[in-house]
Design a protein around this nucleic acid. Structure first.
Length: 562
RNA sequence: GUCCCAGUAGCUCAGCAGGAUAGAGCAACAGCCUUCUAAGCUGUGGGUCGCAGGUUCGAAUCCUGCCUGGGACGCCA
């Protein structure tokens, strides 16, 4: 039920000669304060058209709109037409809709089953899973779920960083200082040490970089020793990553990394040549784009490829394989230029589908105001953070709910939920200063707060012998109205999150709904009044459904007890 | 040097396709558990919306310039 649209229709009937429906819809806003009503129509712009004061226009409109059973009250205030919706009518409509649709409430059909590939997470082999990769992982995962809710078919792609010059460096470092036993014992940590050590040495000795380039070239040429080492490093890393994905509940449809495109790059280079796009520049092969963007490097002067080459091959492969209508790249802010170049090159190659390509950038996780650098060993490991979060959640469960069964699982859900929510609640382009303290906060605007609210709602439903019933709902409690209006806009929130590729819209919404519910919970004794109990429980049930579904869209589990 | 992003309460942020009195959380202080989970609720204090112009009936929101922080700028990804 779209109540806003009804208001639009009413206004349109009165204004039709001057202004169209979509314009009216755009003008309608939500009043700033609850006591001003539920919908407001500002008349300032009409003043010019009608050559009358906004106050008069508002008064006139308010007068002429029929106070049908939809509106409780319509009043002109300061040039606005303020509408108070009929609480009984709307409450019963919204609760009915939520309860009958359940987790399908808020589903949209924007995507029409079109495929959207989402490239996210994409950690680098032989490097630890850092907090930076967490951002890409949780944002990408949430977007996949949100797109799915909007009627798309998401294909989750983990574009592993398993190819590139860094392997040359690693091979050189391993051959000079590596110890097989040590690596076997603690692969990621030891490989990271070798990587860091390489950079320390290379600062003194420039020829090491040259040697690393040579070894990468050997790797690309299929040198046996290089390939064996590469495969070993890769396998160990993938094992490590799977543990984390399992812990946070993320799955992929494809984990084909950059190496997968090795045999697909020559074709792309030929294609570029055939289309006469490739130029020689300082010994390298490049595609000139335009005056605003620097040229895109396709091949280095030693003939080896770059990541742009691999990304071109990957984009083409994905279109051939999946026929996507959209393709998202959830990759950090600092790679914006690269994606601009990549998309431009694909456009120059004549691919119509380049329009569906979108870079979804996000801000960095900073440490002391600076970017964290793997090379200097300045990284915070996700696994440690997750473990601490789970540990703290365990402590909390022990204190607050010692009799709870499956404490371990709940602690995992809450700890992980805290970390994911902390990352998703703010706009993705903001840089985040790393703070373990903030991440492990379970009170206030946090994931556990939303989970707790969900657990409260679930608990009261089972205590109150709730009978599912969505007929004749008449909720009159003052504190319930905020909940109703909040439940009502859930589909709009999904739409906004989709259009902005912005999961934080969902996170903020869940906080708003949770606050409204907790306020209600604090002031109304839901189970005490026998007469009103079932309809109040219907409201609680609606909240429980939407909280659970909202958390699900963020990739966060909703325990029934905690 | 060029380009991109950001600057709102002590801290972290919301609000920004212009609209009514600029909002939350944290931290501080004061209350609320013999009663549905206190990971909660209620209240108090706290603001030159970076600075200066401009557009407008109206600017935290749009435009220009400046300041500050961060990032990117061909052989890394």
């Amino acid at each position: 039920m779209d109540y806003k649209n009804m208001f639009v229709e009413d206004l349109y009937d009165l204004l039709k000669s001057k202004i169209d429906k979509s314009m009216i819809r755009k003008m309608i806003e939500k009043p700033k304060y609850e006591e001003m009503g539920d919908l407001a129509f500002p008349c300032f712009e009409l003043a010019k058209i009608y050559r009358d004061s906004p106050l008069n226009i508002a008064a006139d409109l308010a007068n002429k709109i029929n106070t049908s059973n939809l509106y409780e009250k319509i009043e002109p205030v300061n040039g606005y037409v303020n509408v108070f919706l009929n609480k009984k009518e709307v409450s019963s409509g919204v609760v009915y809709e939520v309860i009958s649709k359940k987790e399908d409430y808020g589903n949209l059909n924007i995507g029409k089953d079109g495929v959207v590939t989402i490239d996210f997470s994409s950690p680098n082999i032989a490097k630890p899973f850092s907090m930076g990769h967490l951002r890409s992982t949780v944002i990408g995962n949430a977007l996949a779920l949100i797109y799915e809710k909007c009627g798309f078919k998401p294909i989750r792609i983990n574009h592993l960083g398993d190819w590139g010059t860094q392997f040359g460096k690693l091979i050189v470092s391993y051959r000079m200082w590596g110890d097989e036993q040590k690596v076997k014992k603690n692969p990621i940590k030891e490989l990271l040490n070798l990587y860091i050590h390489f950079h320390e040495e290379a600062e003194q000795n420039e020829s090491l970089n040259e040697e690393a380039r040579q070894w990468f070239k050997n790797l690309e040429n299929g040198n046996k020793e290089a390939l064996e080492l590469w495969k070993w490093f890769r396998d160990e890393s993938v094992k490590e990553f799977s543990k984390i994905y399992e812990l946070i509940g993320v799955q992929f449809d494809s984990s084909q990394g950059e190496a997968f495109y090795n045999d697909k790059m020559e074709k792309v280079v030929h294609l570029l040549e055939k289309k006469d796009l490739l130029q020689e520049s300082e010994g390298a092969k490049v595609v000139q784009i335009n005056n605003e963007l620097p040229p895109c490097l396709i091949k280095k002067n030693d003939g080896t490829t770059l990541y742009a080459t691999r990304d071109l091959a990957a984009a083409i492969y994905r279109q051939d394989t999946y026929q996507f209508v959209k393709s998202l790249y959830v990759v950090g802010n600092e790679q914006t230029l690269h994606f601009k170049q990549l998309f431009e090159v694909l456009e120059k190659m004549g691919y119509e589908w380049h329009e569906g390509l979108t870079h979804v950038p996000f801000g960095m996780i900073l440490k002391d105001g600076k970017k964290m650098s793997t090379r200097k060993g300045k990284v915070v490991l996700l696994e440690q953070v997750l473990n601490e979060a789970i540990e703290l959640a365990t402590k909390n469960v022990m204190e607050k709910n010692p009799s709870l069964e499956s404490k371990e699982n709940v602690a995992r859900q809450v700890g992980v939920g805290a970390v994911i929510f902390h990352d998703l609640k703010n706009y993705r382009l903001n840089d985040i200063e790393f703070s373990l303290e903030d991440m492990l906060r379970f009170e206030g605007e946090t994931g556990p707060y939303v989970q707790y609210t969900h657990a409260r709602a679930s608990s009261i439903l089972s205590k109150g012998n709730y009978q599912e019933n969505n007929e004749n709902i008449n909720i009159t409690d003052k504190e319930a109205w905020t909940i109703i209006t909040s439940l009502m806009v859930f589909p709009d929130v999904i739409k906004r999150a989709f259009h902005g590729n912005d999961p934080s819209q969902v996170a903020k919404y869940l906080l708003e709904l949770s606050k409204a519910f907790n306020k209600f919970y604090g002031s109304v004794r839901i189970l005490d009044d026998y007469e009103k109990k079932q309809e109040r429980l219907s409201l609680v049930h609606s909240v429980q459904i939407v909280l659970k579904e909202g958390l699900r869209l963020l990739g966060i589990e909703a325990p029934y007890k905690m």
